[in-house]
Design a protein around this nucleic acid. Structure first.
Lengths: 198, 198
DNA sequence: CGCTTCACCTAACAAGCGTTAGTTTTAGTG
DNA sequence: CACTAAAACTAACGCTTGTTAGGTGAAGCG
C-alpha cells in the first residue's frame, strides 16, 4: 500500500510525457520508473496497473474539457459569442495541457472496453455541445443553414488537432490560435453576401 | 527469398487493417500471420521486417496524397476552385483508403528516425500546397487577408480527421463530406460583408 | 527423372513485457 | 531508543515480442 500523492502525481506527469511522445504501448513501466530514478516494480507501491495510469491521465483531460468548455454552451449569449468562448477555452486547455491532451486524443483506444465506452460517451456529449450551439445560431439567424453535425465535426477537428503542431515556444500564442480559428470558423458559418452590421 | 507479389499484397492489406484498428505496437507479426492462416515466422519469406511493412503502407498513403492532390494546386484555375478540388480529392482518398490513411496519420511516429524525417518532409510539402493556394486566393482578392498558415492548418486538420469518424456505410457519402467542408472552409476564407459577385 | 525454387513449417533465440512476493532501507513518532 | 509504516529494493514469474535457422513438401522445368 502507499499513500504519497506526491509520488503518484510525479508518476502521472512522467507517464503523460512518455505516453505522449512514444505512445502507450511503446512505453514500459520500467521507462516510467527510470525517469523517477526508481525500479520498475517500485511503481506498484503507488499504482495498481499501467492501464490505470493511462485511465487517470485520460480522465483528467476529459474533465478539463467537459468541465471547462461544455458549460459555456449554456450561457445566455449569442451563439457566435458562445462558440467563440468555447473555441478559446478548448484551445487553451490543449495548449496548456499538451501532454495530457495528446494522450487523450491518441491513446484512448488502449483502454479496456468498458473504459473506452465511457470515453466515447464523454466525447459524444462534448460534440453535442458544439452541435447545439451551432444549431442555436442557425435558428437565431446568426448562422447559415449548414449541416450542424458536419460543422461541429469540422470545428472540433480543427481545435483538437492543435496538439499535433502547437509548440509552446513557437511563434503563435494559444490566444492567437484561438482568435484565428474563431474568425475562420464563425465567418464560415455566417452568411456570405448579406452583410451583418452595416 | 520470395517473390510472390500476391502474398506480399495480402500482407500489406491485413497489416493495414490491423495497424489501423489496434495500432502498430499492439499488433504482432503473429497476429498478421494468423489472418493469413500461416505461422508468424513464415511472413519473413515475404518481408524483411515488421517496420518495413509499416513503411510500405505509409508510403503508399503518402503517394496517394502527394500524387493525387498536390498537382491540383498548380492548375490554372481560381484559387477557390483549386481548393475545392483539393479538398474533394483529399476526402476521397481518406474515405477510399481508410485503413492506410489511418495508419499514415496515426502510426508514423513508430518509423525509424530517418524514415520519420522523410514523412515529415512529405507532410510539409503537402501542407505548403494548401498554404500556397490560400495565399494565391488572398493575393487575387478571392479570400480575405487571413493568416494563410493557420488557414491551411485548419483545412488540413478538418479533412485529415475525417478518418476518425467516417463510416463507409454511414449516412454521408465522401462527396457530401467534401462538399460540406468545402462550403464551410471557402466561405470562412471569403469576405463576409463585401458581397462577391453583385 | 533429377534439380531447383518457392512457400511454408517447427523450434528456438534473446530480449522485453506487466506484475508480484518478499526483503531491506528510510523516515517519522511515541 | 524502539516501533511503525512508507517506499524503495531484488528477483523472479509466465508470457509475448521480432526474428532466424534449418527442414519439408509441392510445383515447375530441363
Amino acid at each position: 500500500m502507499a499513500q504519497s500523492n506526491l509520488r503518484r502525481e510525479q508518476i502521472y506527469g512522467v507517464a503523460g510525457a512518455l505516453f505522449s511522445k512514444r505512445g502507450y504501448h511503446a512505453t514500459s513501466v520500467r521507462d516510467i520508473a527510470k525517469q523517477l530514478n526508481i525500479q520498475g516494480g517500485s511503481l506498484y507501491a503507488h499504482i495498481a496497473s499501467k492501464e490505470d495510469v493511462l485511465w487517470e491521465i485520460i480522465q483528467r483531460a476529459a474533465s478539463e474539457f467537459l468541465g471547462g468548455v461544455a458549460p459555456i454552451a449554456s450561457y445566455g449569449l449569442p451563439a457566435s459569442e458562445r462558440l467563440r468562448l468555447m473555441i478559446r477555452a478548448h484551445v487553451e486547455i490543449v495548449t496548456h495541457h499538451l501532454d495530457d491532451a495528446t494522450v487523450f486524443f491518441h491513446e484512448w483506444r488502449f483502454l479496456s472496453t468498458e473504459r473506452e465506452r465511457i470515453v466515447a460517451s464523454q466525447r459524444d456529449r462534448y460534440e453535442a455541445c458544439f452541435r447545439k450551439v451551432i444549431e442555436d445560431g442557425i435558428r437565431a439567424g446568426e448562422f447559415r443553414e449548414v449541416d450542424a453535425k458536419l460543422a461541429a465535426l469540422m470545428t472540433l477537428s480543427s481545435v483538437n488537432m492543435v496538439y499535433q503542431w502547437y509548440k509552446p515556444d513557437g511563434p503563435l500564442s494559444a490566444e492567437q490560435v484561438a482568435d484565428g480559428y474563431t474568425d475562420l470558423i464563425i465567418n464560415g458559418l455566417s452568411a456570405a453576401d448579406t452583410g451583418g452590421n452595416p
